Simulated assay, not measured.
Amino acid sequence: MKFLPFILFTVLTNAAAQLMLKYGMMQLGPLSFAGVNPLLKILQIVFSPWVFMGLSVFVISMASHLYVLSKVELSYAYPFLSLAYVAVAVFAYFVFREDLNAMRIAGIALICVGTVFIAQGGSPIHGENELAALPTDSTREVSR
């Protein structure tokens, strides 16, 4: 629970980056490489304002995720990233008017339930189980 705010920050920045990337690509219109140098087209995409901002926020999200991974188990932290899909689906419904049908809502509910199960189980902090098994000074004194 101690690192949950950092995990949620990672999730939210990941979702925000995806929304910015989508908006940026919508601003650029359909991609066509016909008659255009592919490298110039890629540079045009990367340096368009919303795509560039989305990539920048994604870098922040990855930096946050690396911090989280240095503190908690991967099998605990990684499933939380699925909550980014939940956030993206909800925001895409409201912002981009994308479809949010019954099957997607059911899938979102399953993702949320699964994430709650994962959050409740196991030791999320690296080495927490191993530290509990190590002898303390008081147990060393008794064994002498």
Rank of each mutant, 00 (worst) to 15 (best):
V90D: 01
Y93P: 01
F6P: 01
P79A: 10
A106F: 10
L131I: 05
N14G: 10
V72Q: 06
V142N: 05
V95D: 09
S64F: 00
G127W: 02
S61Y: 13
A119E: 07
H65R: 08
N37K: 00
E128N: 02
V88D: 13
F58K: 12
S82Q: 15
T10C: 04
L66I: 11
L83H: 05
L81K: 13
K41Q: 12
V59F: 08
F33S: 06
E98Y: 06
H65Y: 13
M25Y: 02
P38K: 03
L55E: 11
F3E: 05
V142Y: 08
A77Q: 09
H126V: 14
A89G: 06
Q44G: 09
G122M: 06
M26Y: 03
I45S: 13
G54H: 08
A109D: 06
N129L: 11
S123L: 11
N129W: 05
R97D: 11
L134G: 05
Q27F: 00
V72N: 03
I7H: 05
P38R: 06
P124F: 04
T115H: 00
M103C: 00
S123G: 07
F33G: 00
A17Y: 03
P49M: 06
L19I: 14
S123R: 04
L21T: 01
M1E: 08
E128I: 10
L74Q: 02
L28H: 04
L69D: 14
F58T: 03
Y23A: 11
I111R: 04
Y76W: 15
V36F: 07
L21C: 01
N37S: 09
A87Q: 10
N129H: 01
A106Y: 08
I45V: 15
E73M: 13
T115G: 07
M1C: 06
S82C: 04
F94W: 02
T136Q: 13
N129F: 03
Q44S: 15
S48H: 02
I125L: 10
P5G: 04
E128A: 14
P38T: 15
L8V: 07
L19K: 03
S56C: 14
L39R: 09
P124D: 14
L131E: 12
C112L: 13
F80C: 08
C112K: 10
P79R: 07
G122Q: 06
G127R: 09
R104P: 04
V116S: 03
V86H: 04
F58H: 14
S143H: 10
S123E: 15
E98V: 04
G24C: 06
D137I: 12
S143M: 12
A15G: 09
P38N: 15
A84Y: 01
Y23N: 15
W50Q: 13
D99N: 14
S138E: 10
L100G: 10
A17S: 14
I118T: 11
V68M: 02
V113P: 10
A77H: 04
I105M: 04
S61W: 09
A84S: 15
S48C: 01
N129S: 12
T10L: 01
T115E: 03
Q120A: 06
E98K: 00
A106Q: 02
W50C: 14
V95W: 07
G35C: 03
A132L: 15
D99W: 04
G35D: 07
S123M: 07
Y85H: 11
